[in-house]
Amino acid sequence: MFEGLGDVGSLTAGPWIYVVVVLSVLLDVFVPVLPSGVLVITAATAAAAGSGAATGQVPDEVPDILALTLCAATASVLGDLVAYRLAWRGGARLDRAIARSRRLTSAQERLGAALARGGGALVVLARFAPAGRSVVSLSAGATHRSPRDFLPWSALAGVTWATYSVALGYFGAQWLGATWLATGVSVAALFAAGAGATYVVRRKPA
C-alpha cells in the first residue's frame, strides 16, 4: 500500500515536482480548492524518504527540502502580489462585488484595522485559514493598502506557511516512516492549524 510513496519520491530527483508545487501554490490564491498544502506535504514526505530521513540516516538530499521550501514560499508571495495588484486595479466593479460579500467586507475592515495599528499578524494567520489568503490579498489590493504595509507581512506569511508545511512532511516521515499514514497525520496537522487560524481570524476584537 505504501509503495506508491516511493514512486512519488523519485520525482524529487527532477525539476517537475518543483514546477507542480509552484503552479499549485501560485494559483490557489485564485482557486482556493487546489490542494497545494497537501501537495507540499506529500512532496516533503517523499523527499525525506529519498534522503534517508525516514530511516534515521543522515540526509544526503537536504537541498531538496530547502528547494521545496523556497519554491513554496516564493510562489505564495508571488500569488499574493498578483491578487493584490489585480484587486488594486479592479475599480468600481470589484468594489461592488466586495460590497455584496459580507465576508469580504468584514475582512476589509479587520485588515484595515490591523494594518492601521502597525500589525500584520492577520495576514500571517489568514495564510493558514481556508481561502483566507485570497480574502486578505484581494481586500488589501481593493482598499489600496500601501505595499509597505502588506507585502512584508505577505512574505512572512509565505515563508511561515511553507516552512511549516514542509516540516510537517519531513518530520512526519522521520517519526512515522515514509508511509501514507505519515502523510495523512501531517495533512491533519495542517488542517488543524487552518482551523485554529480561522477561529482566531473570525474572533471579534474585544
Score class of each variant (00 low, 15 high):
E3M: 05
L5Q: 00
G6H: 10
D7P: 00
V8W: 14
V8K: 07
G9E: 12
S10P: 00
S10T: 08
T12K: 01
G14C: 01
P15C: 13
I17C: 13
I17K: 07
V19N: 09
V20D: 05
V21G: 06
L23P: 00
V25E: 07
L26W: 00
L27D: 05
P32H: 12
V33N: 06
G37I: 12
V38Y: 13
L39A: 12
T42P: 04
A43Q: 04
A44V: 11
A44R: 07
A47R: 05
G50M: 10
A54G: 11
A54L: 02
T55V: 01
G56V: 05
P63Y: 00
D64G: 07
L68R: 01
L68N: 01
T69P: 00
A72G: 09
A72C: 08
T74L: 14
T74C: 11
A75E: 07
S76T: 15
V77Y: 00
G79W: 13
D80F: 00
L81S: 14
R85M: 14
R85S: 09
R85V: 14
L86A: 11
R89H: 14
G90Y: 09
G90C: 10
A92M: 09
R93G: 09
R93Y: 09
L94D: 05
L94H: 06
A97Y: 01
I98M: 12
A99Y: 01
A99I: 03
S101A: 05
T105W: 01
A107Y: 05
Q108M: 08
E109F: 07
L111H: 04
G112Y: 12
G112I: 10
G112D: 08
A113G: 06
A114F: 02
G118P: 04
G118F: 15
G119K: 15
G120C: 08
G120I: 14
V123T: 12
V124N: 06
L125F: 14
P130K: 11
G132P: 10
S139T: 15
T143D: 02
T143M: 11
R145P: 06
D149F: 01
A155T: 15
A155Q: 07
L156H: 01
L156Q: 00
L156D: 01
A157E: 07
G158T: 07
G158F: 02
G158K: 02
A162G: 08
T163F: 10
T163G: 12
T163E: 04
Y164E: 08
Y164V: 15
S165G: 11
S165H: 14
L168H: 09
Y170F: 14
G172Q: 08
A173I: 00
A173N: 00
W175I: 13
W175L: 14
W175F: 14
G177M: 03
T179V: 03
T179C: 02
W180S: 04
S186E: 08
V187G: 00
A188S: 13
A189R: 08
A189E: 10
F191G: 04
A195L: 13
A197N: 10
A197G: 11
Y199M: 11
V201H: 11
R202C: 09
A206H: 09
